[in-house]
Design a protein around this nucleic acid. Structure first.
Length: 910
RNA sequence: GGGCGGUUAGCUCAGUUGGUUAGAGCGCCACGUUGACAUCGUGGAGGCCACAAGUUCGAGUCUUGUACCGCCCACCA
């Protein structure tokens, strides 16, 4: 076992290297955290198990084992890690469950591509060998993904690493299938479903994505059977499907066409007679007003055919070549058999043209469904599939979001969720692939009895005959991942300690694309299996895009490997940059061709932090530091009070940015519903405090104090260490490595402790009288500006006269004379300057600074400055008056208040 | 076809219930290496807050309309 502090001992604590070595530090700390079990959650400590701590649980959206992680995962997982690290420090029993998804079709596709390169196919290998091949591939990628997660600093509980295809989770899949089956919520249906001719499997509605495409609308004449000189014209974008036509439908109220109903037409090419029927489904306005009915290759036509009791001939094979399927009865001419659908389309159009039956071709833009895994145009095709009857499951899932037990951020996604749930359609869960959980249904070869079994059966559950045949289809990959929030915690084992301690989980962080595919279904399964919503917050991240706002993808070559970034700039730089750019629901734009520029914010900030640490550790030294709590307010210097107040403000801002960790009382109030989860605000609040307040002002103010031994030096040392310690805590969730490395070197560090487990800061009450330091900062700024305005070189000393009535600001300025001298390179003295050229600055406290200048004064510049000040003051006054008039009086504001801005401008200009 | 979101500095974005002279990071310009930091410091330039009308003492913020961009949903073949 590695000593958690070993890394700190490697380097000389008080002689930090000038450059932060992210690589070495990160590796060592990851080991130290792991060795200390810092991220391991204990069920017994959860309040739900009678322990002292509120559980805070996140389950990772399991990355697909198809490929290693990209920067989108970096973003997503950093958000989760920030939340988990925050809650862990805040005293919760924090658990982040890591894991991966076997990703059925996607993974199978990749291995099939590999096989193609080797000149073989899955059929060539056979089912068992193929599955083994995919398993090996998946294992390899899986390991890599988990290593990657660790490298970006994920504080997950690796002892609970899950996998959708593990024996434990397979058991959960089985269990839920059997329960649904026994509840009558799973059925086998003969339906028109989306079928991918490349993947050779069916898809759910959600997996067949719409894409607008230019097509052609063909108007085809079907001659009347008894009078070929007359006919009826139908319109279609897919002429090849006409081989499967069983009728032509017209609207019953369509005057000119309705009279045709009842007659018969002769279907060209297929050479069969089909009826003309009347059905109100037909849209009279579209196309020709007559609709060809192809029940086996169009879901709507299927319904029409069912209403009219028509046959449903299948004329295409699963690979979308024309074929004599069920009920085709010779409709597909020999010449077309085995011909691809698009070739068949061309040939059919040519032939129709030749026969004079093609009336018109018009360009037509329409939405065509594509396979979400391979992009192939999917084909609606009648087949036997397994479905989940989903409406009963949707009901509680709908309610939970409506009544605020679950919130979805950004809120705009709520409407989409509700709409989808309200119009939900049964879920096709069977896939004709080999990689996945096999449908656990066996059929008796003897009596035909069919049943879903929890354990592989050896004999028929009805007649006892030992000849059983299992379904060959496998389950949709989402049928395993929809159980993730509880299957990873031991379900269906009701006695599972984890399940009791950690379900329901808290926040789900994922991409909006899978709101329906995954998130909605988890909510449904959560209620069905556990009776409770699986989480109270769904946080949908933006997408990482390139500078042209294109999604990152392998094929576009605009992807970013998070490990590239980690290697070059460190995990902290990656994380900080991503968090800083992460407004709620906003896409993060990074330039894959200029990582240096893209990740500069994080890299620069990490460097800054490191250098503050270097300064602090060298100048504070190794001797013990007074306990911060022992300092009395009277001992504090002006700057101490100021920085402590700034710290308090920063802590509050971070709290606000993160928001409430869970809804009070289990339901989000309307005010809470949109609160928190502002990671950009968190990063900015912490950055501003560390850089613009701590480094820019307090560190400077401390330098002189640290050099003179004495009580004040001890106060400065104590405050400096305390403030930096608190800052490191605030930043730790975002930048875990560098903060931990620095924290362990503080003189107050207690050996063996970890920042990862240190207490999250709390805002304290503001100290009175810190305004004096603001006056000092303002004065330094004003003097620097005059220096710059008049191009006075830094080497040239300046004399500055402070003109003021005695008071705090004056005292502060004179009291901090040395600091002003160092930061603005000037000598302050009280009292008026000798007459002559001088630049002036008026501070907000009324104090006037007079800087005698040797050269000429730029009157125009000075006047402009004054004018701007006056305009500003006037607006301020106007706003104040307006507010007063508004709040206190019922009447209109006095007329002199209502002068327009333009009038004011003119007034001041003259 | 229906719904939703966006439009603020050269780029990427903040801007909480209307109220000081609209901010940050990156980029740009000038100056600077004083012992934490040039992956830096100081100062600066750069905004008709998409457009138009309205409400208001006051609008980036609220209302209506327009334009452009993006997303989601959908059974017009």
């Amino acid at each position: 076992m590695t000593d958690p502090t070993s890394e700190a001992k490697v380097n000389d604590t008080y002689n930090l290297p000038a450059q932060y070595d992210a690589g070495a530090t990160e590796r060592a700390l990851d080991d130290a955290w792991e060795a200390a079990g810092a991220f391991r959650a204990e069920a017994a400590r959860s309040t739900r198990a009678g322990g002292p701590r509120d559980p805070f649980v996140i389950v990772i959206p399991p990355p697909n084992v198809t490929a290693v992680l990209h920067v989108g995962h970096g973003l997503n997982n950093t958000v989760q890690d920030v939340l988990v690290r925050w809650r862990r420090m805040a005293g919760d029993e924090a658990l982040w469950v890591p894991g991966t998804d076997h990703a059925g079709i996607a993974t199978q596709n990749i291995v099939e591509k590999q096989l193609a390169l080797e000149g073989t196919t899955r059929d060539g290998l056979g089912r068992d060998a193929f599955v083994e091949r995919v398993r090996m591939f998946a294992e390899q990628t899986r390991g890599q993904i988990l290593r990657q997660l660790r490298q970006i600093g994920a504080s997950a509980d690796w002892s609970r690493t899950a996998y959708t295809f593990s024996p434990e989770l397979s058991r959960a899949v089985r269990e839920v299938f059997v329960r649904l089956y026994d509840d009558g919520l799973i059925y086998r249906g003969h339906r028109v479903i989306h079928s991918c001719p490349r993947c050779l499997t069916s898809l759910s509605d959600e997996e067949a994505e719409f894409e607008d495409q230019n097509g052609t609308l063909y108007h085809i004449r079907y001659p009347l059977a008894d009078d070929p000189s007359r006919g009826i014209v139908v319109a279609t974008t897919r002429p090849e499907t006409m081989l499967g036509d069983v009728a032509v439908a017209v609207h019953p109220d369509d005057g000119r066409l309705a009279e045709m109903a009842g007659r018969r037409v002769r279907l060209p090419i297929a050479a069969v007679e089909i009826p003309i029927i009347a059905d109100a489904y037909v849209d009279r306005e579209f196309g020709t007003g007559a609709l060809k009915i192809t029940p086996a290759h169009d879901a709507n036509d299927f319904e029409v055919a069912r209403r009219h009791g028509l046959p449903m001939p299948v004329v295409m094979a699963p690979d979308a070549t024309m074929a004599e399927g069920a009920d085709a009865g010779g409709r597909v001419p020999e010449a077309f058999r085995g011909v691809d659908r698009f070739d068949a389309r061309r040939q059919i159009v040519t032939q129709l043209k030749a026969d004079g039956l093609l009336v018109k071709e018009e360009p037509h833009r329409h939405a065509v469904r594509h396979c979400y895994r391979c992009g192939t145009v999917v084909e609606p095709r009648l087949s036997d599939q397994w479905f989940v009857k989903i409406a009963p499951l949707a009901k509680p899932a709908l309610e939970a979001v409506r009544d605020g037990r679950i919130r979805i951020l950004p809120e705009r996604h709520v409407a989409a969720y509700l709409n989808w749930m309200e119009n939900i359609r049964d879920w096709n869960i069977s896939r004709q692939i080999w990689w996945g959980h096999r449908v656990p249904v066996w059929r008796c070869a003897s009596c035909g009895f069919e049943k879903a079994y929890r354990e592989d059966p050896s004999a028929c559950g009805k007649c006892g005959v030992e000849e059983l045949v299992q379904e060959t289809d496998v389950l949709d990959t989402w049928f395993s991942s929809w159980l993730w929030p509880f299957s990873t915690l031991g379900w269906p084992d009701g006695e599972s300690a984890d399940l009791r301690a950690f379900y329901p989980t808290d926040v789900l962080v994922t991409a909006p694309e899978i709101l329906f595919l995954w998130v909605s279904r988890m909510i449904m399964s959560g209620f069905y299996c556990m009776g409770k919503a699986p989480f109270h917050t769904v946080y949908l991240t933006g997408t990482v895009r390139d500078t042209q706002h294109r999604k990152m993808s392998k094929s576009l070559g605009n992807g970013i490997d998070p490990l590239d970034v980690v290697e070059r700039f460190g995990a902290d730089a990656l994380r900080f940059t991503l968090m800083q750019g992460m407004g709620l629901g906003v896409d993060v734009i990074v330039d894959p061709h200029d990582l240096e520029k893209s990740f500069a914010p994080g890299r620069n900030f990490a460097t800054k932090l490191w250098n503050i640490g270097r300064f602090l550790l060298t100048s504070v030294g190794a001797e013990p530091v007074r306990a911060f709590a022992d300092l009395s307010p009277a001992e504090l210097a002006r700057s101490d009070g100021w920085i402590l107040n700034r710290l308090s403000v920063a802590v509050s801002e971070c709290e606000t940015a993160l928001g409430p960790p869970r809804p009070t009382g289990g339901v989000w109030t309307p005010e809470q519903r949109n609160a928190g989860m502002r990671f950009d605000a968190l990063a900015e609040a912490a950055r501003r405090f560390v850089w613009n307040e701590l480094a820019d002002w307090y560190v400077e103010a401390t330098k002189a104090r640290l050099q003179r031994a004495g009580p004040d030096r001890e106060v400065a040392r104590a405050v400096l260490v305390h403030v930096f310690d608190q800052a490191l805590r605030l930043l730790h969730p975002i930048m875990p490595f560098i903060t931990e490395a620095l924290w362990q070197r503080l003189p107050t560090y207690v050996s063996g402790t970890l920042l990862a487990l240190a207490r999250w800061p709390r805002a304290s009450e503001l100290l009175p009288g810190a305004a004096g330091f603001d006056a000092v900062r303002e004065a330094i700024g004003a003097i620097r500006q005059i220096r710059s305005d008049y191009a006075i070189p830094p080497s040239q000393p300046l004399a500055v006269h402070v003109v003021a009535r005695p008071g705090d600001s004056l005292d502060a300025l004179l009291g901090e004379r040395a600091l002003v001298a160092r930061m603005a390179r000037c000598e302050l003295s009280a009292g008026p300057a000798a007459p002559g050229a001088a630049a002036h600055a008026v501070l907000s406290s009324g104090v006037e600074l007079v800087l005698p200048l040797a050269g000429a004064i730029d009157l125009e510049k000075e006047c402009k400055k004054l004018r701007d000040d006056l305009v500003g003051l006037d607006r301020q006054l106007n706003a104040l008056r307006g507010r007063l008039a508004n709040e206190k009086f019922t009447g209109k504001a006095p007329p002199e208040v209502v002068a327009t801005e333009r009038e004011k401008e003119q007034e001041w200009s003259s």
